[in-house]
């Protein structure tokens, strides 16, 4: 089972092979959990997201198209989506609880700073550091802090169109250093 490629493993899961799901979890569960925990900064929430990602894949493996990239990339993207949902809900809950308080923008580093500092891969950090600061800032806030591009624009005091463009340009620049060299 461990020798199956992504397409065959996904097909086995689609056929109801529970051992294939366990193999899949063994191969990618740590990456899914670790990433969710970095974004959410909460082990219980990361556990919830990890469970959702694999149960969701079991229920609907047809969402994965082997022709579009590795299965690990697909699972991590799903992880990010789920984590962002929870992150935004928690943010809204905290905003309600703290609605009579005003947080200064120059107070202790926000969550995006903590997540940036938790980017463990030297290659990813190096690649991000090659970007112009405005592009790197927009990508870090959008991806690791779970903000929409509109929220990033408000945070940075920039037009929304500018932020959209910076995100796109930054991602295009990262293709070389991250994809050609196989970042891990």
């Amino acid at each position: 089972m461990a020798d199956l490629n992504d397409a065959d493993l996904a097909a086995a899961v689609a056929a109801g092979d529970h051992a294939a799901l366990e193999t899949l979890y063994g191969q990618h569960g740590s990456a899914v959990f670790g990433f969710a925990r970095r974004v959410l900064r909460s082990t219980p929430l990361a556990e919830e997201v990890t469970q959702e990602v694999f149960v969701r894949f079991w229920r609907d493996p047809g969402r994965y198209d082997a022709g579009r990239g590795p299965l690990r990339a697909f699972l991590l993207r799903d992880t990010h989506g789920r984590a962002v949902d929870l992150l935004r809900a928690e943010t809204a809950r905290r905003a309600r609880e703290e609605r009579d308080q005003t947080l200064a923008s120059d107070e202790a580093p926000g969550p995006e700073q903590e997540v940036w500092e938790a980017v463990r891969s030297g290659q990813v950090r190096s690649a991000l550091e090659t970007l112009p600061a405005p592009e790197r800032e927009a990508i870090v806030l959008a991806f690791y802090a779970g903000l929409t591009y509109q929220e990033v624009a408000r945070r940075l005091g920039e037009p929304e169109g500018t932020v959209k463009s910076r995100i796109r340009r930054g991602l295009e620049r990262l293709r070389g250093p991250l994809l050609q060299q196989g970042a891990t």
């Binding site: 990456a31 990433f35 990239g69 590795p70 990339a73 991590l76 891969s121 991000l128 690791y144 991250l178």
Partner: peptide, 21 residues
Amino acid sequence: APLFAVAAALAEGAAGPADPP
């Protein structure tokens, strides 16, 4: 598609090695 791949690489960069659930 390549933008998804870059996002996945960014995710790997934050996952870190050996973080078993």
